[in-house]
Design a protein around this nucleic acid. Sequence first.
DNA 1: GTGGCTCCTTGAACCGGTTCACGGCAAGCT
DNA 2: AGCTTGCCGTGAACCGGTTCAAGGAGCCAC
Lengths: 346, 346
Amino acid sequence: MKEASGRRRTVRISDVAAAAGVSKTLVSYALNNRPGVREETRERIVAKARELGWTPSLPARALSVSRAYAIGLVFEKSPEALASDQYYTSLMAGLQSVLSHSRYSLVTEVVESTEAEREAYLRLAHDGRVDGMVIVDLRQDDPRFALVREAGLAFVSLGWPPERTTMPVLVYDESEAITDVVKHLVDQGHRRVAQVVGPQTNAPARLRRELYQKRFREHGIDASRWIESDYTAAGGRAATAALLDADPRPTAIVYSNDLMAVAGMSAAFSRGLRVPTDISIVGWDDITISQYLHPALSTVTQHPFDDGKVAATLLLEAIGGQEFVEPVWMPNPRFVPRESSGPASA
Amino acid sequence: MKEASGRRRTVRISDVAAAAGVSKTLVSYALNNRPGVREETRERIVAKARELGWTPSLPARALSVSRAYAIGLVFEKSPEALASDQYYTSLMAGLQSVLSHSRYSLVTEVVESTEAEREAYLRLAHDGRVDGMVIVDLRQDDPRFALVREAGLAFVSLGWPPERTTMPVLVYDESEAITDVVKHLVDQGHRRVAQVVGPQTNAPARLRRELYQKRFREHGIDASRWIESDYTAAGGRAATAALLDADPRPTAIVYSNDLMAVAGMSAAFSRGLRVPTDISIVGWDDITISQYLHPALSTVTQHPFDDGKVAATLLLEAIGGQEFVEPVWMPNPRFVPRESSGPASA
DNA sequence: GTGGCTCCTTGAACCGGTTCACGGCAAGCT
DNA sequence: AGCTTGCCGTGAACCGGTTCAAGGAGCCAC
């Protein structure tokens, strides 16, 4: 009586063994599709297991095979920055869309300093909590690659890692979109263009800035007008204010994410400037809200959900032992002109 | 040689035992602060453990004590809806801010149907992957409570659960903010006010709609003008379009989240209406971008990060065996008037 | 000197799987 | 007939902790 109402007795592999009249070794072999089990016997065991509703105990399996059946994702970001940036949530959803069809789970951490990030990595690895990591937001001389290497963890890198590796790497080419943005602006007569960029310790942020500069120079535009910011709205607003203070004011500003671009528009409005009549604004990310803004934001679309899907798939393969030599090229980001960019003001 | 460069040998409890010259039982007792160990011996063991860099193996401990040392969070939402809604990401960050100081981790899942949600719950529970769940977005007759009860999992509910429970419950009172919004609108002469609400299978969405209606009626306003939508931008835009088609058009629309409100503004603009001159708009959530819009969005602020913090704290206590009888009242959401609401048009 | 008590310590079982090494048996080969 | 070979199946060890029941040492009282 007490038993029935109390903690539900879970069915063990030995229960299945007893019910099928074989040893638990054989049950294990049968259920893991190992050779050395007569087909007829295997079927009987599988049927019994299903009948009893057996599912493997994760901790037990984890203990004996030293696998966690989980992957980790650590965000080194302020909660504010994380929440206001859709990229990460979409990425997570993309990862999940693959994991939920496997027996793997996603363990996430949000930390607010590189020191805490380091600890999180060590903890996840040392505790045997995960079998692999998804590394995003690559930084200059990123210390995380050494961490995973030492911990013997598999990983997937979203962006070029600083060292050669046999783990999967996802990359894409932003230059095409950047070329399109610059062409779009130049065609509309813009000659004074400024940039508000992300933290320059962040490798992709740096690369993006350089690509923009290269294209600017090719069109004879002064490429030195850029301000480093932090991807937050407040940061974007402040940077924009500074840029608008310059005497020959820029006629266009390109931002490294939409959130800063929106805040930039707000800064422009509050000075009585019209967008795009007085100043053109181009973002990056294409967050949901961008197309509903007034004016709708010209920006560059990315595919974080797909990135997540592919990243999860490849990471699982890497955990399975597969080696990767070539990076995987993802579809390029694409420029989407909308209303916030137009002809340059006189 | 091969050993040294290969898989790093992790230090086990028996290594500590050998080094300290005691049995592994005693090491376990000492490290778990159990009574029955001489103080001097305990110190020696702890010192040795630290010296060797021992950390407990999670799977091993999980196996013997039937604890996962993790909590679960399942989102039943489209990736799109999840990504564009800051609430969830902030909630997650809040949970993490507590968990990272414990040995607990957060396991997240994103599913797109209630059937998949059910499977996710069963899987997390059955696999022994988590010790407790965070239940958000309560629905009418929410099936998740039965799931966790049957699985014997602890949980924390963000909102009133359908049944009596000894698990922690977080609640807050929206009526104050709603009273303020309605008063604000009425004071400015609004008599025709409409609502765009969230899915009415969602219990809090329903309650919010009813509270608004109650206040409307108290001021003699027709409370029947509401449209059910889905919290997405596309949904908000469509609902707004329908509302604006009505002949005596509403002079104000209140939305159940900011994303729909922004999309609603966009719909108004595209018909040549001005905000707030021709129509006032009030949102709900206060996402980061709201204050940077043009006009800045009048809305209601919530505290998802704090909710997460408190939820995690209480859930850990519940897992520890503590029982809760009274729900915990969180600070009330607060109305923040900005530029998108103003005097009613004639 | 012996019994009884407390305090500290330990061997062994257990959690629920995986896997290694071995054994029985029938078929194939010489 | 004797020996190898392959297939199928099993016992036992192992993963790294926790915990129960029992054992030894030291001390006190009778």
